[in-house]
Design a protein around this nucleic acid. Structure first.
Length: 820
DNA sequence: TACGGGCGGGG
DNA sequence: GTGTACGCCCGTA
């Protein structure tokens, strides 16, 4: 019989000497099935000068002691493969089981024969060999096998084929735990789990909400379920997951916290968390190694949504912290509930009647986690389809491994063999190496009129594709057409033939261009969402390609290629600048892929003509784009020097909004006052209201002196990064933290300390005060003048030729008077 | 300035 | 699991 199914989790087992792949899958009726298929592991060997007859003889008798049985070669064949552009014959060697592969390869390598693809995870091997896309529709021919091995029906497949690239809807369950904790300490050995929250949607799209806890208290909410003790709680958790029966279980830092904690507590109470659909136990790190580890339940796909956000998606976010609170507020517009978690333990012990808000908080976290997972699942599945690997692995990969996985998937179509990963020595060597980066044109400090900004679209990817840059073509002889690299006489790339690596990148760029066209065409919102997710995934991969070439752990590492890419980039940006100057534009600034010209006597139309001329000469896919026209722009100097600072400027758009880059106004340890002043001064100056800017600052300083600035704008924030006893240098924030400890608070590393500087004599740290203790008019104006306002704006004013004392003249004296 | 150690997320 | 993160920040030599 035939079935179609959507595989979401993968495993393999050895049965009677056979290697069986288990595909845990969803069926169209919403139930689950496990499709089982046999697959044989293999790797490759490059004989070079080794005698073939002797090699075959040795292979046939090879048997190395191991568990569960001796590692042996099942069969072998000679096939042609391409390695770094070199087509040659390799031995494809089949092993009796996956773990035999590294054992056999190590032995063969000791004979002086290089082996390849010996460290590819077996499930990855399987998915690539079969060209299957996880989470999408696959068709199997075979039959159900009555069997109690699994909690779901088992289907033995005789053949499988990819039926469509479409996915289905998935049943997600979010989980979050709260634990007993005094002084923010986490101790899974001694502190119990107090409550566990679940959030999901049932088949009717109705909310499923549950908080299980083990303290008797009068609970109003229906979703609260009270059990006898922690052991019963663990059993109830198990039952809840089994009854809800999700394909996906999600948590926030659940690889490192929730599941290891559950595991540790289950161990403590001798409870078996046999949640796996093959009756296996939850796999999670214990014994204090919360950092390491991935939590896994066989047959349920565990998504630690933090991992995907931290490694892949977070680069889109503005937040500098990946806490659930920050991420949820940026992505969902929801924040966490405000409860004083520090008091949970005390409430638990002494005031259980106040537990309900904690249950609500717990549930809310689970709901946020669910929403994050639901929102990002689309993007994640697109990544899975593109790189062709299990979702479980994809969300736990960084860019480099994601790119590499994509390349390895494409390698299957191009009959290309993957080079080996570097060994430790090689990694050490590579980490020593570095390359020159992009070109930055040193700006002259000043206020400029009529700027046009150009930048190269996807500069590094288009350079790689347009110049056929890759390890295969690098100085490849024999060659008729050599493209040499600017600044590097000894480097060139052969252009006679397209090679694998730039070809893969080209496909990636073209694929994305196609999708962009489709997005414009489609009217369906759902289709648009899908295409945008795919486009995003392809963009991430294309942009990571250059970084991958220079990544020390890469299989296709080539520092020469990475260095050539930046060399070409420097060449093109410099040439664009030069041509612009020849045309009569005045160059103001340039950085890596962008250049800023002043129009002077020219107009925007002439700038656009210049763009056309440049583009006519650019090779291949390279393209310069018009970023925009800016009526004003300001570039400041490096502190205490004449030179213009790089990567620090502000532009005014025609609609009077600003594009501010590199100004420190965004940093945490600046007061809101300093940030506001900087922003406003930039704005006024860009609007040609120089005098107003001076008046603004003077007025503000006057207000400051008269104590009129609201306290919240004067609050300084610094993070405590370690235990207070560990600080030698007593900075203001450390002193404040110690004061708060005196008052009975517990300040742990990570706490952000807020303080205000007040009037008085002595060291700065002696004048720091907790904001709530500061009385009206008590703050120290001269501190805020000298350490906040002046540093924030002096470089901006000096561009206009003002000296510090011209702006602050009538004010500094009073300020100085205070000091002496 | 180089190097080593620790942290992130979570309660 | 065909295994052993990684990049940043801080403090010290």
């Amino acid at each position: 019989m035939k079935i179609t199914f959507y595989p979401y989790d993968f495993d393999y087992k050895l049965k009677n000497g056979k290697v069986l792949v288990y595909l845990y899958s969803k069926l169209n009726d919403g139930t689950k099935v496990c499709v089982v298929e046999q697959h044989q592991p293999f790797f490759f060997a490059d004989l070079k000068n080794f005698d073939k007859t002797e090699f075959i003889q040795r292979l046939q008798t090879l048997s190395l002691a191991s568990q569960p049985e001796p590692a042996k070669v099942i069969s072998f064949e000679e096939i042609e493969k391409e390695l770094i552009g070199e087509k040659k014959r390799f031995f494809k060697i089949y092993a009796n089981y996956p773990k035999a592969v590294p054992i056999l390869a190590k032995e063969i390598q000791s004979w002086g024969i290089e082996c390849y693809e010996k460290d590819v995870l077996f499930i990855h091997r399987y998915l690539r060999d079969k060209f299957f896309l996880p989470m999408t529709e696959i068709e199997a021919e075979g039959q159900y096998l009555p069997d109690s091995e699994l909690c779901v029906p088992k289907f033995i497949a005789s053949s499988l084929r990819q039926k469509s690239p479409h996915t289905t809807s998935w049943k997600i369950l979010a989980i979050d735990i709260e634990t007993y904790s005094l002084h923010k300490e986490i101790d899974f050995k001694n502190n119990p789990i107090l409550m566990v929250a679940f959030y999901g949607l049932n088949e009717q799209n109705e909310e499923v909400r549950k908080v299980i806890t083990w303290k008797k208290f009068p609970a109003n909410e229906k979703y609260i379920e009270i059990v006898e003790n922690e052991k019963e709680l663990l059993l109830a958790v198990k039952k809840t997951i089994q009854e809800y029966s999700p394909e996906i279980i999600t948590g926030y830092f659940s690889d490192g916290f929730d599941f290891p904690y559950l595991k540790a507590r289950a161990h403590h109470h001798k409870v078996t968390l046999d949640l796996g659909l093959d009756h296996s136990e939850l796999i999670a790190g214990t014994q204090g190694d919360f950092r390491e580890g991935e939590a896994k339940i066989k047959g349920i796909l565990h998504i630690d949504i933090l991992k995907f956000i931290k490694y892949i998606f977070g680069k889109n976010l503005k937040t500098d912290s990946y806490s659930l609170d920050n991420v949820a507020s940026e992505l969902l517009g929801h924040q966490k509930h405000i409860v004083d978690l520090d008091s949970l333990a005390a409430v638990w012990d002494r005031k259980p009647e106040l537990l309900e808000p904690f249950c609500a908080y717990n549930l809310h976290d689970a709901r946020l986690t669910y929403k994050l997972c639901d929102k990002l699942l689309f993007d994640i599945i697109e990544f899975c389809k593109i790189v062709g690997l299990p979702l479980f692995d994809v969300i736990r990969m960084r860019f480099s491994r994601l790119v590499e996985s994509y390349i390895m998937k494409r390698a299957m179509d191009h009959n290309v063999l993957a080079p080996n990963k570097p060994g430790d020595d090689e990694v050490d060597r590579r980490m020593e190496e570095s390359i020159q980066g992009g070109f930055v044109y040193q700006p002259t400090p000043g206020l400029y009129k009529d700027l046009v900004v150009f930048d190269f679209r996807s500069l590094y990817p288009t350079i790689i594709v347009s110049h056929n840059i890759g390890p295969e073509s690098f100085r490849r002889e024999p060659c008729l057409q050599k493209k040499s690299v600017p600044e590097k006489e000894e480097y060139w790339f052969c252009q006679d033939q397209r090679y694998f690596l730039p070809l893969v990148l080209e496909e990636l760029i073209n694929r994305r261009a196609e999708i962009k066209k489709e997005i414009k065409k489609t009217a369906s919102e759902q289709e648009k969402k899908l295409l945008e997710a795919r486009s995003y995934a392809l963009k991430i991969l294309a942009n990571s390609f250059y970084g991958y070439l220079g990544f020390f752990g890469a299989r296709w590492y080539s520092l020469e290629c990475a260095a050539s890419t930046t060399a070409f980039a420097r060449y093109y940006i410099k040439r664009t600048i030069q041509k612009g100057e020849e045309k009569g534009f005045k160059v103001v600034y340039g950085d890596t892929d962008s250049c800023f010209f002043q129009l002077e006597s020219k107009n925007v139309e002439e700038a656009l003509n210049f763009l056309k001329e440049i583009n006519a000469e650019l090779p291949g896919q390279m393209e310069l784009e018009f970023e925009g026209y800016f009526p004003r722009g300001i570039f400041v100097s490096i502190k205490g020097r004449e030179q213009g600072a790089k990567k620090k400027y502000a532009l005014l758009r025609e609609n009077s909004t600003m594009k501010v880059t590199g100004f420190e106004a965004v940093r945490r340890n600046w007061s809101l006052l300093a940030k506001e002043v900087q922003q406003e001064v930039l704005r006024l100056i860009l609007l040609d209201k120089k005098e107003d800017a001076v008046i603004y600052v003077r007025t503000l300083v006057k207000d400051l002196k008269q104590g009129k600035i609201p306290l919240f704008k004067l609050v300084l924030k610094t993070q405590i990064t370690r235990e207070l006893s560990q600080y030698n240098a007593v900075n203001p924030h450390v002193l404040i933290a110690r004061q708060r400890v005196q008052k009975g608070e517990r300040i742990a590393p990570g706490t952000i300390i807020e303080y205000v500087l007040v009037k008085g004599s002595g060291l700065i740290r002696e004048r720091a005060k907790i904001p709530s203790d500061v009385k009206e008019g008590e703050y120290d104006p001269s501190y805020y003048l000298y350490h906040q306002i002046i540093p924030a704006v002096s470089s901006i004013f000096s561009v206009l030729g003002y000296k510090e004392d011209e702006i602050f003249s009538d004010t500094t004296q009073i300020g100085l008077g205070k000091f002496f």
